[in-house]
Nucleic acid binder design. Structure first.
Lengths: 169, 169
DNA sequence: CCGCACTATCTCGATATCGAGAGATAAGCT
DNA sequence: AGCTTATCTCTCGATATCGAGATAGTGCGG
């Protein structure tokens, strides 16, 4: 079995024999796999009438539980976009009837973004489709290996998750 | 040990107990890890006066070996951007003196993009810095686990690498 | 209870990307 | 050879994002 990264590593070894390119074996695979996943997500969501960014926002609201309502600030921190981007996204989601804006009764500066019934149906459908697709990707991999892979990835991710919650205001 | 994805999976389980969200344990971690890596790459490359997209293009040329020369078509397929984007990138890299365009002697429609000495130095320096950073990410992980992780990732990636070389012209 | 630093959201100009299409050349077919 | 289809690169208009700044409201310390 062989993938793009094997070729990549070989090429670097030939051109830069002075360097230890071992880390690419893990981290380039992570990046490339993520790129493939992004493309596939786009395809899956398009079939459900959503863009990936729409799913990101709606899913955050959906996961928060009833009444499916969060501030723009929480949404932008959760999705790692800037405030200008989030304003624009909420505008478009509201125009599409998937969310509505309400003034925040507890803070007159703020608003709350609430999922509409239609928004909830759309994100639920898209999630189901996403999981179906992801199952096919993981397809042949036995449950024991999945757990081991998940654990190894967690050990890389958890140190990165902690520091610098990175306000993007 | 715990990461963002553990919280994500718990939240979905609470809201959608009807779904099997196991696949997220692996694939959401891949996506999130890739996002962290992107941010870190940006930081590392900025210190070497390169943008991530500049590194992507220059590295492809560097890896191809002397005379460090490829067509725009090969570059756009390697970096998964559209032709309009690649034209724009080559324009800016040429303006920065990191590449030069030459007519392709074998095909009068085409051009060849060649790395300049300065471009080569910059990409070599950036690669060294990138690998240093990646070593710190992988830091504590023993070599045996790295190999296992790489192998598990390869088994997910290799089926995706084959199909649909996806011309983006 | 007043001032001041902080926070929340929105506005707006700049920029990188996409994607459709044009112009030129190449390669295959009859 | 002549014709058609494919390929290569570039052009250009539309769009989503960023990031700095504006506006309004909050709440702490004096």
């Amino acid at each position: 079995m062989r993938d793009e990264v094997d070729g990549l590593v070989e090429a670097w070894r030939a051109e830069r024999p002075d360097l230890d390119v071992e880390p690419l074996q893990v981290l380039s695979r992570v990046s490339r796999l993520a790129r493939h996943l992004d493309r596939a997500r786009r395809t899956v969501f398009t079939e459900h009438g959503l863009e990936p960014w729409e799913f990101d926002v709606l899913a955050e609201l959906r996961r928060s539980g009833p009444p499916y309502e969060l501030s723009p600030g929480r949404l932008l921190r959760a999705t790692l976009v800037t405030s200008g981007t989030m304003t624009n996204r909420i505008d478009r989601l509201a125009a599409a009837g998937l969310v509505r804006r309400f003034p925040d009764p507890a803070d007159k500066r703020g608003v709350l973004v609430r999922l509409t019934d239609e928004g909830r149906e759309r994100v639920d459908g898209a999630l189901t489709a996403l999981l179906d697709y992801e199952k096919t990707i993981l397809g042949a991999m036995p449950a024991s290996e999945r757990r081991r892979l998940a654990a190894l990835l967690r050990s890389l991710l958890s140190p990165l998750d902690e520091p610098d919650p990175r306000q993007r205001t």
